[in-house]
Design a protein around this nucleic acid. Structure first.
Lengths: 342, 342
DNA sequence: CGATTCTCAGTGACCGTTCACATGACAGTG
DNA sequence: CACTGTCATGTGAACGGTCACTGAGAATCG
């Protein structure tokens, strides 16, 4: 078993002190070029690789950030928004030399939860926590005292980043109103996602108010973000005495479910009923009719959250506590004036 | 700045030696119950949390596994199969108390690549490497000498896990042949994914051979797994003098693109042209007509790979070098006998 | 030209665990 | 009752970096 070389092995090989080798590794500018070269070639010769553990122990920093998705894995990895968040965080962290330690699951006492991983051991420098489902995980993790950035909405006194849900919903509603729709139904998300969904409802109400119209008060259903729940919600909506002419689902999955119900019931789309979604997933552009949706630019949100956290770790406090990232309405084929010929 | 308590702080509080505290943490059965209780309450009192860094340094194990997706992030996080792989690995690792350190990107010299992260520092105990795009990353990572499990196909002498691509393609082809199709076109993946795509072609050829039919030799196009490339490939195929009656795309994205082209050209689906995909993504079930596809059970593949790696880390060598996980044909509405009334 | 500063490299302690081994108490044995 | 073995716990040295100082020689300055 050939033991891995250490700082001191390299130092001996290069004829310098171990501290000098450390300096070379950390790109200390005070090291002479000649010495640096000598050390570098010694490192190469011995195939030296620093031990992250030792570095973490000595410096107190692991250069790893934890990303907590407090959802069950099946949901977390199916949700386009969450995945994009991971993507954005990954991109930012990787380019800044940090690692990304992933953690799904909610239950704090589950021995395999984020709690055990991040709080009970000290393995990360900071935490990125998705706050979608609310839940207690945030408070639990907070107690660990890590520098934390929340992705989503939080009542706690933490730095947070979230997309402009209100503005997105405003844009959709305004778009539908402008097309001439009045009976606009909402397929809301699950009640646990309170703050984000509330923001969207605010946007919707504001758009109605700005258009001097009343929000139809009987046209709201709840789903759980799955296509199946969107199908069921649409079914209930279309069964009403006075059915909606437009369905605004609070995510694309449910919107696609609604689309499927409408097709199954032989409605002409979008002539009979317009449908709009939220999240602008890839599927939105692939279905027929393609789905009008709100892009949350989730990758950017994830990236921004990571950037703020890294700044925090570097001691730079963010300018504001709450960061709102712009969202964009993508108008596609699933929305049209009510009764429009196809 | 209140310093975090260490093993010795806890030991002092509980009136035992630091080693005893360590034993309690590691659930050493030789510790008396009375002592254990005393230590545990001291830990609780002081809000003690072990330092992962110190532990890693002393024990040589980090309890973290690296997962390398050698693709650019935009692709990696859009590909359903890859995401499911991550999900499966995450599930298995988390339940076994391991962490999952993610790494995308290909280029080995990119300072922010897997190379820097895993090879240059020693931050993980083992590696899970997706081999889809082939490329040199595998050889580079191999040089690091980590216990490694490859997800996908590899020519190297490494333990690997992959879905039954050949069987899946065989099932699709057999299905199409049984429906009466003869002119079956293939939308192949990018040439970099050589080994996986070759396996699928083998399955296709075997199905034709078993049915005593010849593979139409003019009906193959290449795409890059995006819907756009599937659209383009279908366009080229349908422009032929003798167009296919069925299109078998080697992933769902391209199949959905093909579907879109066919709809745009006002073909009746699936009466005029049948379409089948690969991967059984969520979208396959959401489009109209719903897409016949092959489920690779990617979550299981990821989970299995993780399990094998953990066994490897525990010193248990796997029984075989190559593990093939079953795949399943999901017949949906996009395939029908040629010329069938809708 | 001596004193002072600056630059570059070296020294030794320390971070918080685990590991290998030592020790002490106590029970069982001849 | 001394002797050995076993079990529970203690002791001190790694592990491989970083940090705070120290020191030697060159450069700067009055």
């Amino acid at each position: 078993m050939s033991d891995r070389p250490t700082l001191r092995t390299v130092a001996a090989e290069a004829g310098v002190s171990h501290q000098t080798v450390s300096r070379v590794i950390n790109a200390d500018p005070t090291v002479t070029e000649a010495v640096r070269d000598r050390v570098l070639s010694a490192m190469r010769l011995l195939d030296y690789r620093p031990s992250a553990g030792a570095r973490a122990l000595a410096s107190g920093r692991t250069e790893v950030v934890g990303l907590v998705l407090p959802h069950n894995p099946g949901f977390a990895f199916s949700n386009d928004h969450l995945i994009r968040l991971v993507q954005g965080a990954d991109q930012e962290l990787t380019t800044r030399g940090y690692g990304l330690l992933l953690s799904t699951r909610e239950v704090p006492d589950d021995p395999s939860s984020a709690y055990r991983r991040f709080v009970q051991r000290r393995q990360v420098d900071g935490l990125l926590v998705e706050a979608g489902a609310g839940g207690e995980s945030l408070t639990v993790l907070r107690s660990a005292g890590y520098p934390t950035v929340v992705i989503g909405y939080t009542a706690e006194d933490l730095v947070s980043v979230h997309p402009d849900d209100e503005g997105g919903a405003y844009a959709v509603t305004q778009h539908l109103l402008a097309l001439g729709h009045r009976r606009i139904a909402v397929v809301n998300g699950p009640r646990e996602n309170g703050l984000a969904m509330a923001a969207r409802l605010r946007g919707l109400h504001r758009a109605f108010a700005d258009a001097h119209r009343d929000v139809p008060d009987d046209l709201m259903e709840h789903g759980d973000f799955t296509a199946g729940s969107g199908y069921a919600a649409a079914e209930r909506l279309m069964a009403r005495a006075d059915p909606p002419t437009a369905i605004f689902a609070f995510n694309d999955g449910m919107a696609l479910g609604a689309l499927r119900l409408l097709r199954a019931h032989r409605h002409a789309l979008p002539a009979d009923v317009s449908v709009a979604g939220f999240d602008d997933t890839e599927a939105a552009d692939l279905v027929d009719p393609s789905l009008t949706s709100v892009s949350l630019h989730s990758v950017d949100v994830g990236r921004r959250a990571a950037r703020i956290l890294l700044d925090l770790l570097d001691g730079r406090a963010p300018a504001q506590r709450e960061h709102v990232m712009p969202s964009t309405l993508k108008v596609r084929a699933s929305t049209a004036p009510p009764g429009a010929a196809r």
